[in-house]
Amino acid sequence: MWIYLTKRIVGLLPLLLVISFLSFMLVRMAPGSPFDKERAPASPDIERTLREKYHQDEPLWQQYLRYLGVARESDGQGGTRWVRGGLVQGDLGPSFKYRNHGVNDIVAQGLPVSMSLGLLAFLFAMGVGIPLGIYTALRRGQWGDHIGSFFSLLAFCIPGLVVGPLLIMGLALQWRLFPVALWSSPWHMVLPTVTLGLYFSGRIARLMREGMTEAMKEAYVVTARAKGLSESQVVFRHALRLAILPVVSYSGPLLADLLTGSFVVENLFLVPGIGVFLVNSALGRDYNMVVGLALVYAVLLVLLNLAVDLTYGFLDRRVKLS
């Protein structure tokens, strides 16, 4: 078990190296530079000074080594020294757009907000999706199933950029039940959570319905019935354990997605998370920010997938971790 865990965590390092290299090179491939202004490029003098300050005048491989923190630079007295900071020390470097801010600062400020919004949306999606999925699976082929399945598919077809404006128009502007935007009290969190979570609740309901339908065909469910257990005991104590596996394996990538923020929801409700930064940094060629956020996403994804595998082994003892 511990060997397995260590192996998985160590296996993360090469992936991070590949991701950092790929995103580092990809974002530099795109035309334009972080120092371009809206209209004309910055004046040549300013641009040269900026490029020097951020070491953009060095060859690409040296910039990458500097980013990793394994490069040597001249110390101004004829000798050389190791560069300060760098990825090996957990430093994601300075932001090119928000001068005087490190990527670490911005992530530290925005990530908790995005994570709490993402977690709320995840809980909402699970809270709606799982019961709906179980209900439709148990009523398979009946009216309850048809109506429930229709709604889960409908949720799956309405993106956040439709739900958000509709909720703002109806519940915030027309009836003034909820605040229109911002992120300061639990009351402010309701609309963003629903906007972000609704789409995924439909997906989870569909996965849950299929899982439950399959689980109810298992021999041990028939045995549990034959023992004379009540229907709710059969469903919740025996079938659910197996039926929830598809939802569990989907929830790894889903959580990684939700925790790193959503551009649409953060933009619509002015939530100060990092989802907006991810898009804007890629658009504005804020090189370090793009690489840093890609790394945050990759770490979260790998750790959550690991958690999913562990949960899998716990729920279905037939699965061996290796």
Partner: peptide
Amino acid sequence: VDVLYSLPSIIFVIVLITTLEG
């Protein structure tokens, strides 16, 4: 495929679209 999975797709799309556009 695994590596591309763990890269946020929006970065990939933005870079691809702007590069090709140029």
